[in-house]
Design a protein around this nucleic acid. Sequence first.
RNA 1: CGGGGCGUAGCGUAGUGGCUAGCGCGCCUGCUUUGGGAGCAGGAGAUCGGGAGUUCGAAUCUCCCCGCCCCGACCA
Length: 588
Amino acid sequence: MLLRMSTYFLRTLRDDPADALVPSDKLLTRGGYVRRVAPGVFSWLPLGYLTYRKIEQIIREEMDAAGFQEVHFPALLPTEPYEATNRWTEYGPNLFRLKDRRGVDYLLGPTHEEMFTLMVKDLYSSYKDLPLIIYQIQTKYRDEARPRAGILRGREFVMKDAYSFDLNQDGLDLSYQKHRDAYIKTFERLDLNFVIVSAMSGAMGGSKSEEFLAPCEFGEDTYVKCSKCDYAANVEAVTTPKPKDVDFSKVPAAHVEDTPNTPTIETLVDISNSRKDLNRDDRKWQASDTLKNVVVMLTGPDGKNEPLVVGIPGDREVDMRRLEAALSPATVRVFEEIDFPKYPALIKGYIGPQVLGLKSQSKIKFLVDPRVVTGTRWITGSNIAGKHVFDLVAGRDFSADGFIEAVEVKQGDVCPKCEGNLEIARGIEIGHIFQLGKKYAQALELTVLDENGKSQVVTMGSYGIGVSRAVAAIIEQNHDDKGITWPESVAPIDVHLVAAGKEDEIFSAAQEIAQGLEQSGISVMFDDRKNVSPGVKFNDAELLGMPWIVVVGKKLAESKVEVKNRKTGERQDVEVSKIVSHLKSLIK
RNA sequence: CGGGGCGUAGCGUAGUGGCUAGCGCGCCUGCUUUGGGAGCAGGAGAUCGGGAGUUCGAAUCUCCCCGCCCCGACCA
């Protein structure tokens, strides 16, 4: 392929667009790869589309190599399948909905579990047909509340989604593993740094789920990594190791005390340590000795509201994402002022565990952080305004309805697998693999006859790669202050050839080199613009980011051209007669 | 949906009540220039996001609407 910049439909921008924040968005726009047309909706320009297709093709090749079969579903879908799985309702405002001329509802597919399931149901009915893995590369639509970061999070985006169909869990495990292996190969070929983290299966249901995250400060997912072992997990899926029960035989009986002017945990701890009668004999009170009882309102899938109190150590905050993930499919909202009168047991600011729990009179569900084990000793609300209770012991003075992971994960927290400490980092979700189980097959009655002639519900997995997102993720990991630095494996073009100078000899020599490269299968972006100064051409070459920049200029007098590695900046002069074979050896 | 910021030419911006809305990049014409975003001269391009109001006078003040960006909520 030989592209000529003099006629290529491309315009680079000197300045960063004012609205762009993340490097990939800035560089894709400045480099003339994409244009934003609406919030979270983008057009690909020729160079951008070339890049996009290159990446899509790598993904496709790896899927095909793994033995998966490509299909293609429409993006415009009828509602019935989504009503059958209740997602027409569950998806809420995130679903793009539209009506046809007769007023019949349609939707733009946010994901295609239903369609794949129905397709298999249509064609297959025997266990002998399984296992089956099919995939597509399709545009998805999600009406995100807040699209951001350019094509990293769009409302229209391209996803490779695959689905596996097996007779039983063993088969599913195998299909899952096949995807895991294929994804590792794919992301390695895309030259992406990535980590595989445990994830919550969330609303998708099912048992096992892992995410492939590309570490990046602008990533939306927060994950932890153990400093000692191989444990890695999305923060939503981090489990807190439960400490051993504590001996409480020497803890005095619980006592209620006046604690005026203690609006914060800090002031409460201060008073507890400054008043001699409240001191503990072994050490000072700390924020982590207070039990903070946070109320939230849950809305179940059936639409019913129900309060929930979560008891957590006072030195921690509730992480709403983790809480919601733990409670899924129920949704969580903050407990508001107007909710309190309906639950007189809850005294704002002084909620204590004594009145909580499904077995208590209030019947308000009470879950605690795993650190609140039997024998732990707390300062907490007394359910009377202005008073707190001291030396309240878990298992002696109160008991919860269970444990919940609701607290924010902190740098240095203990690893659940070993004794190491957790490190926190951010990443871009570039892939996600799920064991769905039977949720969709059951809802849509996808069954096959087993060898005994008995009807069995098929078990499924679903597996996604963000194709358009991968383009941006690669740039996030491969750029410098001058522009993109494409890895060779994904670069849209191999060589950026600059004719630097005005002399005809330079242009004709460059022209010859361009054709020579093209003939040996090396793709070229040839900057053949006349009346454009060399500085502009060099800057454009660096902005666009092709792995090799070849400059035909003043060294042509010595029959030499300059070859520059975009990423490392290394330069080398090469004889004109050898340039094609030289690049051939570099690029192979 | 809550909080914050912003909307002036293709892009980046100046302009806080007063004359014809200014500048840089880009674009067009001509001449010069060609190894790190060239110079000179001439030119095109803006209903100042929209509407209503206040005022002798509004890009500028007020109200409503629309849109964008950021944080949070939300996110198979």
